[in-house]
Design a protein around this nucleic acid. Structure first.
Length: 587
RNA sequence: GCCCGCGUAGCUCAGGGGAUAGAGCAACCGCCUCCUAAGCGGUAGGUCGCAGGUUCGAAUCCUGCCGCGGGCGCCA
């Protein structure tokens, strides 16, 4: 379907005709545009297995394929590189096919899978902070990407609402508000909403409590007791917990909404709470889990391990379940009820050890079936000095504050520019939000997922160079041209063979879309989408500078260029949509 | 101690065995009577941490060392 796959088919046939494996025919975009548009390195690899000179293989393959009408030139260079350039007519034909295709030439996957993307992972009693940014937007992009590719995808927020912290919050609340009916065992309900316990309270109490628990065994025991009481369904505690969940979720949904992120499932650890007891008992009964120092653990080490992997604790010696337990139970639920084929865990890389334990435990307990579980780890966002990002006061920067910062910076930039001068206040506010979010998201997603990166507010809000706003600007320009053209009664038409350096460059770029989508999916790597979106915008900008579309005298040429602009716009729209970036109506 | 990740231009980062290692920013030089200059073109800038190895070919794979970050049962 794609140009690259067509070329691979051509060259692969050449290798087969030469008595060599077709797999040597893989064609890629050229590293040396001066020598050709595409290249195949297969002759070098084939030389080894065939025991022949790579150049002679390349010559043989070249002779075999050079008569193909789609190829303008086939040449051999260096030790045996086969360089290809396609005819301008072929480029035009491919471009027309892309322009006429709803999916821009990207075929849907042949075997759709049930995919669950587990991402964001906010916790009760904690407003989201900068650390949640990556988990949220990487996960959101992967969700959109897999969905676009044709998979059945569910995004699950995996709310952290069922661990020891709940007991700690209950104890903290009891200290401040012992009068609440929630703590009276003899009270039968109903429970009033403790409205004066706010998220801000919970956030303040929690770290204090955590310090105490670490220091004082009595307090720790109290928190554990409250946790087990909650987990075994004590009504007052459950009511209090429901309140915690409500106030936390309200704050988090605001942040998600600002980021344009939505979830299909707002499941949490508590969703599987009724599975925990049976899961542990069953594992014990079947001998999969064992008692160790009073706890129930499941062995997860395997013969080939480089280092010992310690058993996963399913139930503590105090009778509480841990987040590992709920993680295993969540796998059980996703496999049995949601029929997941693939589960992507978009979680900080630092949790890799834990997730490995959990995956193995689920497997050993026979709960995961054929479902593939994958940890999509990511690095941390650091400050300019390389340490984790903090506010000037040394505290954790709230995600909501970060969003506000980039929005303000975009608004300032907008005011400095003459361009937005005539826009209404309301429109400028909308644009500032869209531009700020784009700067934030693109600045993050363009980085390799696995590496740590530095968040530099100044750089992120500069809005110049390789940034989200640059992409928005390019999209707005495309819209502007298309709108003006349509007002003048000009319509996109058949794509003519490109002959300019810049329109050829744009066409060659756009035709790479299917491979980029494939690669981004395969690697679960949003940065490939981000990078490609930038290249599309940059190639368009060059084309835009060199070819003045609206004043082009030749109607055929003009219609062709308009079709290229329209297709570039659709391509950019798709990519930006996958990245979760909105395009303002104008800037 | 063991395990995992990282080390590429002044800065921030891309680069899934291939040719001459790229981009953005910062620096310097140009381009707005013309579809939005948040733009475009150009110049300069590199022992790809170090040392070995595998290979026709290594930033990329392997080993060791150095440096930085992270993780290592009853927290999440």
């Amino acid at each position: 379907m794609s140009l690259l796959s067509d070329l691979t088919t051509i060259v692969a046939a050449g290798f087969e005709a030469a008595g060599l494996d077709a797999s040597f025919g893989a064609v890629q975009v050229s590293d040396r545009p001066d020598l050709g548009q595409f290249q195949c390195n297969g002759a070098l690899a084939a030389a080894r297995s065939a025991g022949r000179d790579p150049r002679s293989i390349a010559r043989q393959v070249a002779a075999q394929i050079e008569s193909d009408h789609r190829l303008a030139s086939v040449s051999i260079a260096g030790p045996g590189f086969i360089n290809l350039t396609v005819t301008d007519r072929t480029l035009a034909g491919c471009m027309d096919a892309m322009a006429g295709d709803e999916r821009l030439g990207v075929s849907p996957v042949e075997e759709p899978l049930n995919v669950i993307v587990d991402y964001a992972g906010p916790n009760v009693a904690k407003a989201m902070h900068v650390g949640h940014l990556r988990a949220t937007i990487i996960g959101d992009t992967l969700k959109r990407l897999f969905r676009f590719a044709g998979h059945e995808v569910l995004g699950d927020v995996h709310f952290g609402d069922w661990g020891l912290q709940m007991g700690m919050l209950i104890v903290a609340t009891r200290r401040r508000r012992p009068d609440l009916a929630h703590f009276d065992r003899s009270y039968g309900g109903p429970y009033e909403e403790p409205l004066d316990v706010t998220l801000a309270d919970l956030q303040a109490w929690y770290p204090e409590m955590a310090r105490e628990v670490a220091r004082d065994e009595d307090v720790a025991a109290e928190a554990r007791r409250a946790t087990t009481d909650l987990q075994s369904g004590r009504p007052g505690y459950v009511a209090l917990w429901e309140h915690f969940v409500r106030v936390s979720r309200a704050s988090q949904e605001r942040d998600f909404s600002d980021l344009g992120v939505e979830f299909d499932l707002w499941y949490g650890e508590s969703t599987v709470r009724d599975l925990l007891r049976p899961l542990v008992d069953d594992a014990l009964a079947r001998g999969v889990a064992v008692r160790s120092d009073g706890a129930v653990v499941i062995e997860v080490s395997r013969p080939g391990d480089k280092a010992e992997i310690t058993p996963l604790v399913l139930e503590t010696s105090h009778g509480a379940f841990l987040y590992g337990t709920t993680d295993v139970a969540t796998i059980q639920m996703r496999v049995a009820d949601l029929r997941a084929d693939l589960i992507l865990y978009v979680v900080d890389s630092r949790q890799s050890y834990h997730l490995e334990q959990v995956f193995r435990a689920a497997c050993r307990a026979g709960l995961s079936g054929r479902t593939v579980m994958e940890h999509i780890g990511f690095g941390t966002m650091n400050a300019r000095d390389g340490t984790p990002f903090k506010t000037r006061e040394g505290g954790v920067l709230r995600l909501g504050d970060l969003i506000e910062m980039v929005t303000d910076a975009a608004a300032t930039r907008l005011e400095e520019s003459d361009l937005a001068a005539g826009y209404s206040r309301a429109e400028r506010a909308v644009i500032a939000r869209q531009v700020g979010i784009a700067a934030l998201k693109f600045g993050d997603l363009v980085n390799n997922r696995t590496s740590n990166y530095v968040f530099d507010l100044r750089r992120f809000t500069a809005l110049e160079g390789k940034t989200g706003p640059y992409l928005q600007m390019a999209a707005v320009r495309m819209d502007s041209i298309l709108t003006r053209a349509s007002r003048r009664g000009l319509a996109p038409g058949a794509v003519l063979p490109p002959h300019h350096e810049t329109d050829t460059g744009l066409v060659l770029r756009l035709l790479q879309l299917p491979e980029v989508i494939d690669r981004a999916m395969e690697l679960r790597a949003p940065n490939h989408l981000a990078e490609f979106a930038y290249e599309v915008a940059a190639d368009f900008s060059r084309f835009y500078e060199a070819c003045h579309i609206l004043t082009e005298p030749d109607p055929g040429q003009q219609a062709s260029w308009l079709e290229m602009v329209r297709t570039a716009r659709r391509t950019l729209e798709l990519l930006l949509d996958l990245l979760g970036i909105e395009v303002p109506a104008r800037m």
